[in-house]
Design a binder for these strands. Structure first.
Length: 645
DNA sequence: CGCTTTCTAAACAACC
DNA sequence: TGGTTGTTTAGAAAGC
């Protein structure tokens, strides 16, 4: 189509200018971009290293509490295997271009683990020295455990950092000899260690489920098919496991040995939004069976959790794509020009035929990719497919970029919930088109401003700041913005001292939405049902985010002013739609505009979770229309000299 | 099928 | 002269 070449072609000046804007934002995007370093080999080996260290540290903990002899053995084992990790790490640095970085990273790792070992030895000696004083042992153990926990946290942070940079990637099918590596690293010794530590024979099902690959599945990098078809979370899908996943896996092991539960930690029920405290595991189980039984509420929360995971995986895939593009770019640059640039095996599962991954020829409007159902999309999410899947846009449904397949276990409302809570952060970082019309976005930008007025340039800035999608194809969307400003009567141009600013005529804006949304009784009921769960679901999201410890993308701005402001936009969309009633009985088919259906309003609530820094967004059925209830000021950027245009 | 909305593209003018 | 801002027209896609 003509549109394919259009947006990219005329973007000479404006695109650069836009790039400056994006680059000057200094947000998470930048951090990631700057720190991302190309080296696939180091990545995989690094991951294995970390995973094993992580697991061993946990084993160490158990061992320490089991008995000291086991502890010593474990420490010895850890030390030697750490060396082996580093050795393997060295052997896998084969990429000349990444060698420098790899060596640097290796050095860091080496230093890190050496320090770690020193600490361990030190603690060991201290513990032995104090062994005679039996009363002090427990205290020493406590200190030691804290030390280990600290190390673990460091490792997790490191893991997370690497992952965020896109450096962490583990795929069963990648060319890197990851499996042999993994198998070579863990096998019988660990199993033996596991036996020693737990004092129990390794379960048959454990080794069976791993096809004998490993006695102890510490990494979950095994290509075993997902157990949960809904989640469908397997390595080929997300390509890599987030740190929290690793953590979960490890803690799951831990749980088994302690008759614990993934939903139970530190005496607290980890069910999203619950946080109930329990003295013992049994009472927790009781609570779990009673409060979180299989009912509508739990199902809805589970769906939400699934969406959380999926969104995170989407984000992950996106960043992987970016990394691959970077790596490919560097690869092409630093080597002889080859006809077909070979990606560095990191995320190269489905490179488009004869198309360099870096090239981004497809604009978001390119209607080339088929609509990928959610469930399917999940299983086929790859850097490439994402690239083509995301941008397909139809009028409403596609705007969500969360296509719903007929077989999808998620109701439209579920997706909306997920969207609503997560969108802000998601769209800030993911190159996905926001599900709002230009008019709505412009209006929101203006309403967010202190003076409720913005210059055109400030509107541009808001777009680029709030949506990664609008950091490219500037000529296209800027033209659309101008077009909308001129076209819609709701946007009023006001001559100012400094020039002209744009304001919003609310009356006109409300008039402007005759596209009434019909709601079926089923939909209404669904909405109401979910609304009843609003706070819980919202809390579920946040709890999940917090638990996942992904501050950059999620936790940081959950409940943040900008989230609320965007939520406000959503609310307005919903309000406007609902103002026009829901009359007939048509169904809420997935192809329809999901957002404007909802009579949902965002309000701020008292935090359900004491850890939450801000009150969670919750959804209520009030028709309350308070325009400034959450107009936080995430706006300074527009007034600063961030304006590089 | 017609109308409406939205998006994209583009031409054009005024202004800086 | 080139870029920005603002207006307008046209066409396509999609929903009602």
């Amino acid at each position: 189509m003509m549109q394919e070449a259009g947006p990219e072609a005329p973007s000479n000046g404006t695109t650069n200018q836009n790039g400056v804007v994006a680059g000057a934002e200094g947000g998470a995007r930048d951090v990631r971009a700057k720190s991302a370093t190309p080296s696939s080999d180091i990545t995989a080996a690094d991951l294995v290293n970390f995973q094993q260290q992580q697991s061993r540290l946990e084993l160490l903990q158990r061992c320490m509490f089991a008995n000291d002899a086991h502890f010593q053995n474990t420490l010895k084992f850890t030390t030697t295997t750490t060396e082996r990790c580093l050795s393997l790490l060295t052997n896998h640095i084969s990429d000349d271009r990444g060698a420098k970085v790899s060596l640097c990273l290796q050095q860091q790792l080496q230093d890190f683990y050496k320090k770690q070992q020193e600490q361990l030895h030190l603690q060991l000696f201290q513990q032995h020295g104090s062994k005679q004083q039996s009363k002090e042992v427990s205290a020493q153990q406590l200190v030691f455990q804290q030390q280990l926990l600290q190390v673990q946290q460091l490792q997790q942070q490191h893991l997370l950092s690497l992952q965020r940079q896109g450096l962490l990637s583990i795929q069963p099918n990648q060319n890197l000899p990851l499996h042999s590596l993994t198998q070579g690293m863990i096998p019988a010794e660990l199993q033996q260690l596991w036996k020693e530590v737990t004092g129990a024979p390794v379960k048959e099902e454990n080794s069976a489920s791993n096809n004998g690959h490993r006695g102890l599945d510490l990494t979950s990098a095994s290509p075993a098919p997902p157990k949960n078809p809904l989640l469908n979370q397997h390595p080929t899908t997300n390509g890599q496991y987030s740190s929290h996943t690793l953590k979960r896996e490890s803690s799951a092991l831990d749980d088994h040995s302690h008759h614990s539960h993934p939903l139970y930690g530190h005496g607290v029920c980890k069910w999203p939004g619950c946080e109930a405290v329990f003295e013992d595991f049994q009472s927790f189980l009781k609570h779990l069976n009673n409060e979180h039984a299989l009912d509508d509420r739990s199902t809805a929360q589970c769906r939400v959790q699934m969406q959380v995971v999926q969104q995170l995986e989407l984000q992950l895939a996106k960043d992987k794509e970016r990394l691959q593009a970077m790596m490919t770019h560097l690869h092409v640059k630093s080597t002889e020009p080859k006809p077909t640039p070979q990606p560095l095996n990191l995320v190269s599962k489905s490179v488009p035929e004869a198309s360099p991954p870096l090239s981004l020829p497809q604009t978001p409007t390119t209607p080339t990719a088929p609509l990928t159902p959610l469930s399917q999309a999940h299983s086929v999410i790859t850097p490439t497919s994402l690239h083509t899947v995301g941008p397909i846009r139809r009028r409403y449904s596609d705007k969500y970029n969360m296509p719903i397949s007929p077989g999808s276990p998620f109701s439209e409302t579920d997706l909306r919930f997920c969207y609503i809570v997560q969108n802000k952060e998601f769209y800030m970082n993911a190159d996905v088109r926001p599900p709002f019309t230009y008019a709505s976005l412009i209006r929101q930008a203006i309403l967010e401003s202190p003076e409720k007025q913005l210059t055109l340039n400030e509107i541009y800035n808001w777009f680029t700041r709030m949506f990664a999608y609008f950091r490219r194809n500037a000529a296209t969307w800027k033209n659309a913005v101008r077009h909308n400003l001129s076209l819609h009567k709701c946007f009023v141009r006001v001559e100012n001292v400094k020039g002209a600013v744009w304001t919003v005529d609310e009356l006109e804006f409300q008039k402007r939405r005759p596209q009434k949304i019909s709601g079926s009784p089923a939909l209404v009921k669904n909405i109401q049902t979910n609304l009843g769960y609003g706070p819980a679901l919202s809390a579920a999201f946040q709890a999940s985010m917090a638990e996942n410890n992904i501050p950059l993308y999620t936790t940081a701005s959950i409940g943040s002013p900008t989230l609320n402001s965007l939520a406000n936009a959503i609310r307005e969309e919903m309000n406007g739609a609902m103002d026009h009633g829901n009359s007939n009985g048509s169904d809420s088919s997935p192809g329809r505009s999901p957002l404007p259906h909802l009579p949902i309003h965002f309000v701020k609530e008292e935090p359900l979770d004491p850890e939450e820094h801000e009150g969670p967004l919750s959804l209520v059925t009030t028709a309350n229309h308070s325009p400034d209830f959450d107009h936080h000021r995430d706006y300074e950027d527009d007034h600063g000299n961030e304006d590089m245009l």
